[in-house]
Design a protein around this nucleic acid. Structure first.
Lengths: 339, 339
DNA sequence: CTGAAAGCGCTTACAG
DNA sequence: CTGAAAGCGCTTACAG
């Protein structure tokens, strides 16, 4: 395996020169550059990034930690980030925390040990500021994505969950619904709290008292949504519409509806959050909040790049405005006809 | 930042000793080990993997190249592989080729430059043996996943596409269908050819002449499926059932069906391939071929680990048997009633 | 515009 | 069971 030394010898220059043409740095005469390039070609030289990493004290690698890559929302986000990284010759380390802080910690320690250049973090449930503070000390640039953490000064890229919750609830109210439930999500989830906050604020605005029984937590999965809908149906038959924590929960809830021969959009209105690709293709297609996961990934990548390049501006919070996407899962007609 | 040298000095041993306790190698007396561990703790020493990578001439990093991480099939596979990697303290590089050989090449070159330990490759469309042969020379362990390439001796993990195509076609034939179409997938796709081969073999077995007009290629996306179904409906109204290249194509096709007020499973039978999570939650739920993407990811990881550890057995081909999953998209009743 | 040389932080072969 | 030292292949500060 040829090294930079071989290349240098082969064309009678120093290794410094070779290194410089390799990275387009410093002033090298065109003639020398050509000679070096040719030697590289002739020797089949391959740049050894591991040596550069050691010498540079940092690598061209960045991490992405997700809770659940299996959720299409995160796949889309990953695609957006991956694109951004590729365009900048950075390599992307991927790991799935599955919402376990222990896994998260392990991954981040590997990152540190690899001298990774940065991290896009969708923090696992239960991540505390203290943990982030230790990260801070280690000088690793971090961008928080999707899930915010209070009391940190890392940049954050996400959406306005409160407003999204309002948007979807207002839509249901406009359609005439008065008995509106909210299901799904973890009790400790801040995003859930915000979405539910938006939901409740709209109920109040319309003089409807939020009922505790209308609000149920559940794992943010298809099965979680299905189970939550099951108990909701049993105990609160008065409900005519349900706001789901996100699309995946909604899909599970719809499954339960169908098992009860209830038609979403006709017998009961249902909404999601995220606007995952599948949402447009279910039957009826899901009315939901579009959050542009891909855009979140892209913007997180951009923000991370800036930090890696040494930008030390104060904390930035990039909030991508949510949009209501009206499809068929809330029907077209006056819901009072059915409820 | 403390190094191994600092640790060694701090407890009066050599760096060799520290290195050895760090990696649980060689014989170190328990007393020495304890002293070293304590020094590490006291100094807040962090192992520098980049130095180890340079010294070892290879890293603890492996690559995963996908065509489309946005397809839930690949997300599931990624989750399976990621799990396997984590269990073995390997880091996973992810990249999306989007079926462009140029991107694929670039990623693999980065991997080589990083001295990655191996690669799980879902080759991009148009990958030729020649390219794989050069990889071979570079000594990078590679496992092919999902898409096979002829004329290479790399291990392969995938499913039996031909048999899967047969399974689904036989099901449709059993239900009484005689005019069965096959839509979706790229003309050059080997997997598509195999699935379609299975489909045709079953038609022939039942004395049905496969019609060219019943078989349409299309991009393997939702929109591709939707468009293909559109033209099929227009030109071949005699068709009562359609085998889709995979689930995502089927979801797009179903969208078109709905737009024409056609009910899948009643007016027309439709099947998928992959058994993506969504398939169980669409309405009607999709009859499809289960391929266990997660298992493919896991097995690919296992196979790669073996190769990394120096196993030089001849090429291994791991074929995970496909299973027919009957749901509602082909109906329950005699399809002749409708067609 | 180019060269000589130190050093990044490990691991391992060798000696004891 | 442990130590001294070479070397992995780069990059950069310095000198010219």
């Amino acid at each position: 395996m040829a090294t930079i030394v071989d290349v240098a010898k082969h064309c009678g220059v120093s290794t410094a020169t070779v290194s410089m043409v390799l990275r387009d740095k410093g002033r090298i005469s065109d003639k020398t550059r050509q000679r070096v390039l040719q030697a590289i070609d002739e020797l089949g030289y391959v740049y050894n990034q591991t040596a550069a990493n050691l010498r540079n004290q940092h690598s061209n690698q960045i991490g992405l930690l997700l809770n659940d890559i299996t959720n299409p929302f995160y796949s889309e986000m990953t695609a957006g980030l991956s694109q951004e990284m590729e365009d900048n010759d950075l390599m992307l380390f991927l790991a799935n925390s599955e919402d376990a802080v222990a896994r998260q910690k392990k991954f981040i320690e590997s990152l540190l040990s690899q001298k990774a250049g940065g991290l896009v973090l969708c923090p696992a449930k239960g991540t505390d500021q203290k943990f982030l503070a230790t990260l801070k000390r280690r000088q690793l640039p971090v961008i928080l994505a999707v899930r915010d953490i209070e009391g940190t000064d890392y940049d954050y890229v996400g959406t306005d969950n409160f407003y999204g919750g309002q948007l979807v609830t207002q839509h249901l109210l406009d359609l005439g619904h008065r008995h509106i439930a909210f299901i799904g999500g973890d009790k400790a989830s801040k995003n859930r709290a915000s979405r539910m906050g938006g939901y409740m604020s709209k109920l109040i605005e319309h003089n409807i008292t939020p009922q505790l029984g209308w609000m149920a937590t559940c794992p943010a999965t298809r099965n979680g949504g299905a189970a939550a809908m099951e108990t909701l149906l049993k105990h609160h038959p008065e409900v005519t519409a349900v706001v789901c924590y996100h699309d995946i929960v909604a899909f599970g809830a719809i499954r339960t509806l169908r098992q009860h021969q209830l038609e979403p959009g006709k017998d009961i209105a249902i909404t999601g959050f995220d606007d995952v690709p599948e949402a447009a293709d279910t039957y009826p297609a899901l009315t939901t909040i579009s959050v542009s996961a891909r855009e979140i990934g892209r913007r997180a990548g951009e923000a991370l790049l800036e930090r890696i390049r040494g930008n030390t501006e104060p904390q930035k919070r990039i909030i991508i405005p949510p949009k209501l996407v009206i499809r068929q899962s809330c029907g077209y007609t006056d819901p009072n006809d059915n409820g």
